[in-house]
């Protein structure tokens, strides 16, 4: 039993968006959707500072896999649950599709996998299509890859080592050291959601 988490190092994120590509290929997220696609992970370009002392920053985000997850709290059917490794997951068979969890997530981590997305998934991936029913979708820390001993696809593909994945309960892991030293901090601590994704800014 682990307590998986991720550290995002905003200082080393290049903004190449390889993580988004890797994630969307592995998890078949609707990159084809209108208005820029639907993603489990995103890299947003930000301006930091004021002219002339201004620079561009790239800000990666995913589901924060909160210990006190608002999405899980509002889910009426229990479709959203936390597994033994602290990963917040969705049981697609139980997902009512009410959108309550999307509204409750303060990190904008969820989206609807709709009928047209299922059709496109089958069109692009054929027999390998992984989504067969409408549901709300989000990052799973690539739980299927973890079972095979691989890192989540976004962390595995990150060029700048901006995504550091590991067990927060293992004091010798790189992620635990960064979190325990206070160098990496969660977003929106005031929300009391206790995220397991931390940021070095």
């Amino acid at each position: 039993m682990a307590r998986y988490g991720m550290v995002m190092n905003v200082k080393t994120c290049l903004g190449c968006k390889a993580c988004m590509a890797a994630c969307s290929q592995w998890n078949q997220t609707p990159f084809w959707a209108e208005e820029g696609g639907k993603w489990r992970t995103r890299v947003t370009e930000l301006e930091d500072g004021k002219f002339p002392e201004v620079k561009r920053k790239f800000f990666p985000t995913i589901c924060m896999h909160c210990e006190n997850a608002g999405c899980q709290s509002v889910c009426p059917t229990g479709a959203t649950f936390t597994n033994k490794d602290g990963i917040v997951l969705i049981d697609y068979d139980l997902c009512l599709g009410c959108g309550y969890c999307i509204e409750a997530c303060p990190y904008d981590a969820r989206y609807e996998y709709e009928k047209e997305d299922l059709e496109k998934d089958e069109f692009y991936f054929g027999e390998d299509a992984r989504h067969h029913q409408v549901h709300v979708d989000k990052c799973t820390f690539c739980v299927d890859r973890l079972e095979e001993g691989m890192e989540p696809s976004c962390a595995a593909t990150c060029v700048g080592h901006a995504r550091i994945f590991g067990d927060l309960d293992d004091p010798n892991s790189e992620i635990a050291k960064l979190v325990n030293s206070g160098e990496a901090k969660p977003l929106g601590e005031y929300l009391a959601t206790k995220p397991k994704v931390y940021y070095i800014k």
């Binding site: 899980q72 709290s73 509002v74 889910c75 009426p76 059917t77 229990g78 139980l94 997902c95 009512l96 599709g97 009410c98 959108g99 309550y100 609807e112 996998y113 709709e114 009928k115 029913q133 409408v134 549901h135 709300v136």
Partner: peptide, 18 residues
């Protein structure tokens, strides 16, 4: 998202918090 899944609304496992 799919109105035909409405019967799942009767599966009220989340009653303790939802």
């Amino acid at each position: 998202i799919d109105p035909f899944r409405f019967l799942l609304a009767f599966w009220i496992k989340g009653i303790g918090h939802s």
